[in-house]
């Protein structure tokens, strides 16, 4: 069959590119116009100078990191154990890990507030620390589907059961096996899940707002109501950050065990030319 120039596909891709790039360009353009009559990075400077920006960003970063940590601690051993010892339970665990996809965040936090409120056995919302913990738990729940998927796929690809048997037949203890054999092999899967968790929770608004936490999401919404140019600057920075996180996630996900996350520049240049 003779190949003609693909006119229609080209037009479609161009239209798509316009739709996706114009808002980015517009936000960028807008973010530079804070000073009348000239283009400047004034909006970015003013954002970075705000102490609320820094404190909320720090808060959200810490909360996200905590969510990653607890999520990994919860998911990794479970995924391992279920694959190794409880294969019959795997469909159940997988189903449960996917449940957050059908519970809207606003519903989840509503349940949390009611269940862990003032007259509950576990009155987490009554103290500031308790509320922080509840926020982190919320993020663990929201990222659970992605974390579990990443880790479970990682384990599927290395045949955990055989590796464990091999290690044990060589005399390694169960703990040694997990630390020296399993973990290094699923590390990139965990890292990939971690970056996704981070991108979900860093700018998260609903949970943080309803739990009244001084987090980055609510700060951004407030900023949007009070200012004109700074939000555009924030949009650009967020997009850049999302891009970086996704790139890191992709790198971690496609990396082979033992390979370092960042390849030396020589091989990076080589891989580009492929």
């Amino acid at each position: 069959m003779t190949r003609r120039f693909p006119i229609l596909p080209t037009l479609i891709v161009l239209a798509g590119a316009a739709y996706f790039l114009v808002p980015l360009y517009a936000a960028f353009q807008f973010s530079l116009q804070m000073k009348r009559g000239e283009l400047s990075f004034e909006a970015y400077r003013s954002v970075f100078e705000s102490s609320t920006f820094l404190s909320t960003l720090t808060f959200s970063t810490v909360a996200s990191a905590a969510a990653i940590f607890f999520g990994a601690v919860l998911v990794v051993p479970t995924a391992y154990w279920v694959r190794l010892k409880l294969p019959k339970l795997r469909p159940v665990v997988e189903f449960l890990s996917l449940l957050p996809l059908i519970i809207p965040p606003v519903v989840l936090v509503f349940g949390h507030i009611r269940l862990f409120g003032s007259n509950s056995i576990l009155p987490l919302t009554m103290s500031s620390w308790g509320t922080n913990i509840l926020l982190v738990i919320g993020y663990v729940v929201l990222s659970m589907p992605y974390m579990f998927r990443a880790v479970d796929n990682g384990m599927a690809s290395i045949d955990i059961a055989t590796l464990t048997e091999a290690a044990e037949s060589l005399g390694a203890s169960r703990l040694r096996t997990i630390i020296d054999v399993i973990f290094p092999n699923v590390r990139s899967a965990i890292v990939s899940g971690a970056f996704l968790t981070f991108s979900i929770s860093l700018g998260e608004f609903v949970l943080a707002s309803l739990l009244n936490r001084p987090a980055f999401g609510p700060y951004m919404v407030q900023l949007g109501q009070d200012y004109a140019y700074q939000p555009a600057a924030l949009a650009i920075m967020s997009f850049a950050l999302t891009w970086i996180l996704m790139a890191l996630m992709q790198m971690a996900a496609t990396r082979k065990p033992g390979q370092r996350l960042f390849r030396p520049s020589r091989s990076l240049a080589a891989s580009k030319s492929q």
Binding site: A27, G203, L234, T242, M246, Q250
Partner: peptide
């Protein structure tokens, strides 16, 4: 595809800001 991976995760508040600027 790469851009889609990013854009499908670019939601929430910053997305709204970008559209307000547009």
């Amino acid at each position: 595809t790469t851009f889609s991976g990013v854009a499908s995760n670019f939601a929430g508040v910053p997305l709204a800001f970008a559209f307000i600027a547009t």
